[in-house]
Amino acid sequence: MVPKISAKTISLAAAKAAPDPELDLLVREDDFSVRVERADDPRFWVRVEREDGDGIVVTDYNAGSRPDQELAAGVALALRTLGRPLGKVIFRDMFPLGMDGPDLPVRMIQATEALKKICLHVGAETGREVASFNLEPRRGKLDAIAVFR
């Protein structure tokens, strides 16, 4: 005998399930980029360039008031939407306000660890692993470069 499942049971089961951060993400595309945003947080965004260059370039990423796991989901969604094979991913300008100030070492560690987590999330989602993760200076700024295999 199969037990009956009521609408109340289904809604309770859905409420207990882990929330999917991608449900609240909006994708916007144009000829130049893929952008992922949240309607309820104007400071949350991810922007990935469409141009074919040395690798996939993530030019902007900011969690706003959302947890880091949602930023990772946003980056993964933008990369998936871009539809290019995952190889080298360049995160431009880890410190948009510049690389100075007494808190730079702490900010560098925090930003690096956050980007590593994002890369691990993207790798897990795509079945790829992070082969290397490096920081490289570029015109007075600092980029992070992840290579997936």
Rank of each mutant, 00 (worst) to 15 (best):
D100F: 09
V89D: 03
P102D: 08
R35P: 01
G101A: 04
A78G: 02
T126A: 13
E125A: 11
A7C: 02
R107K: 15
R92F: 05
L120A: 01
E129F: 14
S33R: 15
A18K: 15
I145G: 03
T126H: 02
V46T: 03
G127I: 08
D30I: 11
V75P: 00
R28I: 13
V36D: 01
V122P: 04
T9H: 08
A111V: 10
D20F: 06
P67E: 08
D60L: 15
P67L: 06
D24H: 10
P42E: 06
D100M: 10
A18N: 11
K141H: 08
P105C: 12
L77H: 08
A14T: 13
A78V: 15
R35E: 04
M94A: 05
A15Y: 07
D93R: 14
N62Y: 01
S132P: 11
L135Y: 00
P85S: 08
A131I: 10
P3T: 08
R80E: 08
E49K: 15
V75Y: 05
M108H: 02
G64F: 06
R43G: 09
M108I: 14
G101E: 08
Q110R: 15
D52F: 05
P42F: 06
A63S: 09
V57E: 07
L77S: 00
A73E: 01
R92Y: 03
L26D: 03
Q110D: 06
G98N: 07
Y61K: 14
R138I: 05
E51Y: 02
Y61N: 00
R128H: 12
A114H: 03
D103G: 12
F95T: 03
E37D: 14
I5N: 07
I10V: 14
K88P: 00
V27H: 00
A72W: 04
V89Q: 09
V58W: 09
W45C: 10
N134V: 11
A111R: 14
P102A: 15
R38N: 08
I56Y: 03
A15S: 14
A114F: 05
R92V: 05
E129Y: 05
E51I: 04
S33K: 10
I109K: 14
A124P: 02
P137T: 12
D54Q: 12
F44K: 05
A18H: 10
V34I: 15
K16C: 12
S6M: 12
A146K: 03
L77Q: 06
V57F: 13
A39Q: 12
D100H: 15
D93P: 00
K8R: 13
E49I: 03
V75N: 02
R35D: 04
L115W: 06
A78L: 14
E129N: 11
F148P: 00
I109C: 05
D30P: 08
I118V: 15
A15G: 03
D100E: 05
E29W: 04
E29R: 13
L97N: 07
D93H: 14
M1I: 14
P42V: 14
R139C: 05
G123C: 09
I118K: 05
I118F: 06
